[in-house]
Amino acid sequence: MALSMKAKKRWSLVVLLIGLPLWIIVAVNIVALFDRPPIWLEFLIFVALGVVWILPFKKLFTGIGAMPPEDDRSDDR
């Protein structure tokens, strides 16, 4: 079941406003479980966790910034 462009925009907004802050809290708590690693390792961990959170939502964010097709333009107004 494909989402309309309007639905994709709304769900992507929900993911960015609710999901991303929750993931940041999870990432900080994961790193806090261990003794403080060297700064370069901590940086790599946060970069990896920053990439991992978006993988399940890759399809949702694809095409969000593109111009909508002609038939969907009336839905966005």
Rank of each mutant, 00 (worst) to 15 (best):
K58C: 08
S12F: 02
F34D: 13
D71V: 13
M1V: 13
I45S: 02
P37D: 10
V52G: 09
L20D: 08
F43K: 06
S12A: 15
F61V: 06
V31F: 01
L33Q: 00
P69C: 09
A7F: 01
P37Q: 07
D76T: 07
L44A: 15
V47P: 02
P69I: 07
L55E: 08
F34E: 05
K6R: 10
P56K: 09
I64V: 09
G50H: 08
F34R: 01
R77S: 15
V28F: 08
W23Q: 05
I24Q: 01
A32F: 04
L44F: 11
D35K: 07
G50Q: 06
M67K: 15
R10Q: 14
S4D: 14
L41W: 14
M67A: 15
L44G: 15
V31K: 07
A66T: 13
G63I: 00
G19I: 02
E70C: 02
G63N: 04
L60N: 07
L55T: 14
I64Q: 03
R10W: 10
P56C: 02
W23H: 15
R73K: 11
W11H: 03
R36G: 07
A7N: 11
F61N: 11
D72C: 10
W40C: 01
I18C: 04
F57A: 11
G65E: 10
S12I: 06
K59Y: 13
G65K: 07
L17Y: 12
L33D: 02
F43D: 10
D35A: 11
W11P: 00
F61H: 12
L22I: 14
A32L: 07
L22E: 08
A7R: 10
E42L: 09
P21L: 03
I39R: 15
P38V: 11
N29K: 00
L13R: 03
R77F: 10
A66V: 09
F57M: 10
L16W: 03
T62K: 10
V28N: 08
L22N: 00
L41D: 07
A2R: 13
F57K: 00
I54G: 12
L41G: 13
K8W: 10
V51G: 11
V47D: 08
S12V: 02
K8T: 06
G50M: 02
L44C: 11
L16I: 01
D75M: 07
G65T: 04
G19H: 04
D71F: 14
R10D: 14
G50I: 00
V31Q: 07
A27Y: 01
V31M: 08
G63Q: 06
R10F: 01
I30H: 00
K58R: 08
T62H: 12
P21R: 02
K6S: 12
V47S: 02
V26Q: 05
M67V: 13
W53T: 03
A66F: 06
I30M: 05
I30C: 02
V51W: 12
A48E: 01
I54D: 04
